[in-house]
Each structure stands twice: as structure tokens, then as C-alpha cells.
Design a binder for these strands. Structure first.
Lengths: 217, 217, 217, 217
DNA sequence: AATGAATGAGGGTTCATTCAT
DNA sequence: CATGAATGAACCCTCATTCAT
């Protein structure tokens, strides 16, 4: 188990191996329960090397958070085409989000569970990423409202709350999707679009939101 | 700071003081980072007494989880009148939920953040509570659909996903409410009802869900 | 398990109950591993009462040693009639010894194992008892030599060593007797008499020591 | 006091230092009363290093037992030449035994006192060594009987008891030798040979066992 | 570029012992 | 006569971190 012990690798590669090991360990054990010993062993290097490259446990954890946060936002950003209509953008973004979290459960655990349970150096890092996503969703809602010639009165605080709720629902569904056998990223995205876009009353009246037909990938 | 150091209290009282201190400490520091020393000091007792009454860190944490879970479900149950229509029940339940989590942020942290971050003795405890709540919400959705003479069927798995999303959104909004100055339990409940019940499309068409007028308190 | 919880007993009785519990616990767990909690519970009293009557763990252990030492020497003394010939006295004494240790394994463990493994307050106590027994055996050897019109030259130090060896063999056989199913006190006494009195060379020449026929009990 | 504080030693050396310190501490204080702190200090290292190399108190104690048991049996084995007559082998073995135990009193305490006082991981270890020795002595008695054209049979159980008694006597004399000023290994061996081989009756008749004349050292 | 050797500090747990009633 | 309530001190063990090579 752990990376094959190859000697003399360039620094960048070694660092990635260490981060891989760290994300996996932090994701499964939690920040405090993860030991530098275990991470070093899993990475196939000696502990001093980990310190040489990544300075401290705190700094290593921060590096993990940053790498995983960037990977997640990038995945979502890549999944969305800003020239399409708002609901389509949301739909694509959600699919990308669910797909990425399903493929990187340890990274998702680091971001969603572990980083938030400890004080501010870490929580702040995740908050930043989250705010970026919430801002994106907020903008989507505003644009959608404009496109729909909506009455002008979704007050700002209300929109913020809506975005927050939507993101929270997504996060929760991500965990649920990973834990429920047979639940797929696409299904979860669909459920959430129905919930968010159409709302329960529409759903119950038989007017669900329907996914666009001309998908790309 | 900490409880006033009063000597010779009956066991039941001391136990509550200890649980108070433990919930606060676990909620803020996390399970692993919290030290029994700190908890004992905050409770105003010596460490051996904590062990005498609560046996171990694990068992103490479990006791915290159980107490807080019971308090939360009780608060929600008390807020809801089962003879009222489904949307009114949901509205009342959400208000109770947001109010309780706002008043007990440490307890909420224990349940929502800390207990889930660590292995199965603890996570299972919370899962049980959460499943109870999800079941309640699921039932509400089913009843609402029936009341609305809905097209026969929201398929079962879909309903489960919706309930999951709604609960997740609520959990997320609870944190947001606590963290956002000026956000109140009532507002958050309102936002979430709009989001869940009416959906974004209705909202944007100027058809929000509107809270019932004949409130009690 | 443990003594029946009867209230208000005279001090002497309570003390014996405590010593019983202590001997059993010390004998099985060892001095350090035995906890005052366990002893008090087994005695059916509260811990402060144990301290009130017996002052401290050390003093309690000492009391155990003394009581068991006295019981053992008394048992041996009672088994021996000083007017009989030396070999008969030894034979009777050994039988009494093996019988007593077999009937009080915890007490024997306290004396033979536990008390010796810890520093001098305790070891000294046992040493005193042991020296009494060794002196008795030494005297027996001297008397026997005189009765046999022996050459006068068993030097004193030699006799001391012989007595020591005999007592050591007996102690060792006591443990062996308790641990070996089917081994009885009488057999062990017989084996040891053969060994000590006749010696291996006599045994091998078919001249064992033979037990007296006219036993009392 | 304690080893000179030399830094950076190879692991094998440090391990021996630790075992030395542990044997000394366990031998004098007993298993439970010995603290890892004391052992580490006596070894001239920090506690974590002891744990790094020897894993736990239990495992450290076991390592001590094994090392001392091996050293003792090796010493006896080395002292005996299997081509010599049985009584000579016994004589040589006893001398080696008394010499070794006198030179390693702490090791002997670990084996004879401490290890037996605590439960089965440890006691079993010593039992194994002891059984090896008892088997050796048993064989010696059987061979001696054959050499002496003994009446056909000392029954098997009887021989077992005799060997047990002889070994027990030796163990007991070992302690006595260490504790009695002026008692030497050679004298104790001689006393025990007389006792065991000739028996008291022969001794008292002036027919002691006499040590062989052509000794090596 | 990499590591074997080593430690200060702290955490969970238990125990003998004592008040105050 | 008897005890529920409480603690100071110590012990085993682990961890993040560094030095010398």
C-alpha cells in the first residue's frame, strides 16, 4: 500500500504524492486524528522530507484544502458555458459538482467535513471557495430573474439566502449521493433542479422543471 | 469564566454541568481537539469526577450528542401541530428548527459538524436523528401532494431526494443564519419556504409562497 | 458476588470481611493491580470505611500478610506433635503445610508471590514467618542427626542451607500441587519426604523413606 | 547515575541499553510499580524512544523476560557436558545456575519473582523456560536411575515431583545465596547436591555425596 | 535529495486518599 | 456506624517536530 518507493524524484512530483497521501489521510481520519507518520508512510517518503517540502501539519492541511478547492471550482467552471441560459448553466454546474465530488470523496470530505470542524485558518479557506460558488449562483439567480422579466423585487438579502439554501442543498445531496447506492450524479442534479427551479408546488401540480435535450457531453 | 465553583452538588446536577461544558468545548474545538482537562475546568470540577460520572471521552461525547439530538427533535416536535396543513407544519417546524439552532449554536455544531466528522459510534447517533427528521419531512411532502390532488406520483426515490435536499438546505441555512448578522430564524424559515415550496420559477414570476396569517406567537 | 450487604456489624466482623476481600483481591491481582475500590466493593462496604478501619493500602496489605502468615504457621504447628520423632514431625508438618496452602490459595499467593515482589515493608513480614519455619526445620534436622548418632559434623552453615533447600522445595511443590490436577497434599508430602530424607541415591537403590503407619487423623 | 548520555547511537545498541535499564527496574520495583519514565531515564533516553523501539510496557517486559530466560538457559547449557555422568551433569548445571543468578540478580528477580506475579502473557513465558529446565533434570534423574541399575521404576509422576522439588529447592537456594553474605555459588551447589543426591539420612550417617575431583576451572 | 535518531509536550485514564454529612 | 462527593498526582502512550548526517 502507498506509493511505490522510487528514489530521487523531482520536487513537484514528490509534493503531489505527499498531497495525495495527505488528502486521503485527512479525508478519512480527520485533521487531528491524521498523523504525519501515516501520511509520510503513505506517501512513501520519510517524515523530514514532508516537513522540508510542506513545513508543518497546518500548512500541509492548508495546501490540501487549497488544492482540492481549486480542483472543485475548476471542475464546476469547466462544466458551465456562460453564454447559455441561466437554468442551463445551473444544471451543468450541478452535474459537474456532483460528478467531481463523487470522484474525489476524500477531497470532498476534506473540504466539506474536516476543514470546517477546525478553527479559522482552515474554515476561512473553505469559506472563500464557498463564497465564490455562492456568488456564482447568486448571479445566476439574478440573471434568471432579469431574463424572466421578473418583478424587480427579489431583495438582495433574500437572493443571498436563496443561493445559500441552494448550495447547502447541493452539498447535502452530494453526501447523500455518495452514500446511497444506485444514486447517480445526474439523478441528484435532476432532483435538485426540480426542487430549486420548479419548487414543490409546481412539482405537485405536475409542472416539473425539465432538463434541456441538447446536451454536449 | 466557567460555572461558579460550588462544592458538593448532587450527582444529577453535576452531570448536567459537565454536559454543558462538554457540548460547548466539543462544539467549538471538535472532538479530538477538545481536551478532558479543558472540559473539566470549564465545568468547575476535577477530571477524575468527569470520568467517574461519564466514563470516558467517547462516552461523554456520545452523551452530548444524545442530549442535543433529543433537545433539537423535541423543539421541532413541540413547534409543529399535526392537525394543520402540511405547508403550515413545515413552516412551523422550520421556524422551530432555526430558532433552536440559533439558541444552541454549540449543540448544533456538535450535531452537524463534529459528530459527523468521526467514525461510527458518533455518526450513527446523528444519522438516527437525521433520519427521523427526513422521515418527517418526507411524510409532509407526500401528504402535501395528496392534499394538492397531485398527479399520482412523485416516485419514491425522488421524494427521498427532495426531502434530503430540503433538510440539507435547512441545515446549511442554519449555519448561515448564525453567521450572518441581522439574519433571523423567521426570515430564514421564510426564505426556505419560498425556495422549497414555490421554487425559483414561481418566485421570479412574482408568485411566492406566503406565510399563513393566523400565527400564534 | 461479594459479601451480602448487611448493615451495622460490629467492627471486628467488618474487619474480617475486609481482610477476606483484600486477601482474595491481592492474591489474584497482585498488590499494585488490586484497587481499593475493588476491595471495598467485594467487602460490601464503602471505601472510607476501609480507610477508617485499616488506614491505608500499605497497612491493609500488611494486615493481610500477617493474618495469612499466622494462619499458616498455626496450621503447621497444630499438625506437628513435638514428642514424636523428627522425621515424623517433618512428615506431619509437610502434610499440614500442603493441605493449608491448597485450601487457601489466595492467602498462599499473597505470602509466596505478592508480598515478596514489593519492597521491604512487606517482604520483611514474610521473611520473618519464613525464618520461623526454617528455624523449625533446622532444629528438626539437628535433632534427627543427634537421634541418629550422626557424626557431629554437619556444620551450621550447611544445615542452614539444607533447611533452606527443603523449605524452598516445599514451597515450589505447593504451587505445583495446586496447579497439577490429581496431585494431592499427601502425595506431595510423600514425594518430598522421599526426596529430602532418603535422597536420590537411596531412592535409586530401592530404599525409599516410608511413611509411618499409625497416623492420627 | 544511569548510562552516560551519549547521543545518536545505532538502534541495536540503544535497545540493549533499554533492556538493561528495564531489567534492572522491573527486577527491583516489580512490573506494575516500575514506571516507563524511570526506565527511560535510567537508559539515558527519552520515553518516546523507548516506545518507538519496544512498543509498550507489556512488550518491553516480555522482551526482558525472553532475554533473561535465554541468557540463563544458555549459561546452564554451556556449563554442562552431556557426555559426563548424570550426577556430574547435575553438579555442573547447578554451579552454572547459581553462578549466573548471582551475577544477574535483577534478571533472576524478573524471571523468578516478577514475571510469575502477573497474568498469562508473562507467566507463560517463564513457564516455558522452567519446563525446559525441569525436563532436563527429569531426564537426568531417569538416566541416573538407569546407570545405577535401579529397581525398575520410579513411577513417572513421582519422578516429575522429584524434579519439581529439586528445581524448586535450587530456585529457593539461589535467592538465599544472594541474600546470605559469604554464601557462594559453589557452596550452594554442594549443599543442594548433598541434599538431593544423598538425602538427609545418608548425610546423617556420614555418607555425603562428594564432588568429583577432576574439575575444569 | 533524503533519512535514521531523538525529544518536549500534552492527552486520556486511573488510583489512593479525604471531606462533609 | 457509614457514605456520597471530590481530588492531586501519576502513569501509559502518542504526536508534531527537529537535528546530524
Amino acid at each position: 500500500m502507498g506509493a511505490v518507493k522510487t528514489k530521487r524524484m523531482p520536487r513537484a512530483v514528490r509534493e503531489q504524492q505527499m498531497l495525495d497521501a495527505a488528502v486521503r489521510t485527512f479525508g478519512r481520519r480527520g485533521y487531528m486524528a491524521a498523523s504525519m507518520d501515516e501520511i509520510a508512510e503513505l506517501a512513501g517518503v520519510s517524515k523530514p522530507l514532508v516537513y522540508l517540502y510542506l513545513n508543518s501539519k497546518e500548512s500541509l492541511f492548508t495546501a490540501c484544502i487549497r488544492r482540492e478547492a481549486r480542483a472543485l471550482t475548476e471542475a464546476v467552471r469547466t462544466g458551465v458555458r456562460p453564454d447559455l441560459p441561466a437554468d442551463r448553466q445551473l444544471w451543468d454546474g450541478l452535474q459537474a459538482f456532483f460528478a467531481h465530488t463523487a470522484e474525489h470523496p476524500d477531497g470532498w470530505s476534506v473540504l466539506h467535513l474536516q476543514a470546517r470542524t477546525h478553527g479559522d485558518p482552515f474554515a476561512a479557506e473553505v469559506r472563500a471557495m464557498r463564497e465564490e460558488i455562492v456568488a456564482f449562483v447568486t448571479e445566476l439567480i439574478v440573471v434568471a430573474a432579469r431574463e424572466a422579466h421578473s418583478d424587480p423585487d427579489l431583495p438582495e438579502r433574500e437572493v443571498a439566502g436563496l443561493a445559500e439554501a441552494l448550495v447547502g442543498a447541493a452539498e447535502s445531496l452530494a453526501a447523500w449521493t455518495n452514500a446511497t447506492p444506485g444514486a447517480t450524479a445526474r439523478q441528484s442534479a435532476s432532483t435538485l433542479m426540480n426542487f430549486a427551479w420548479a419548487g414543490l408546488s409546481n412539482l405537485m401540480d405536475g409542472r416539473p422543471w425539465s432538463p434541456p435535450v441538447d446536451e454536449v457531453s
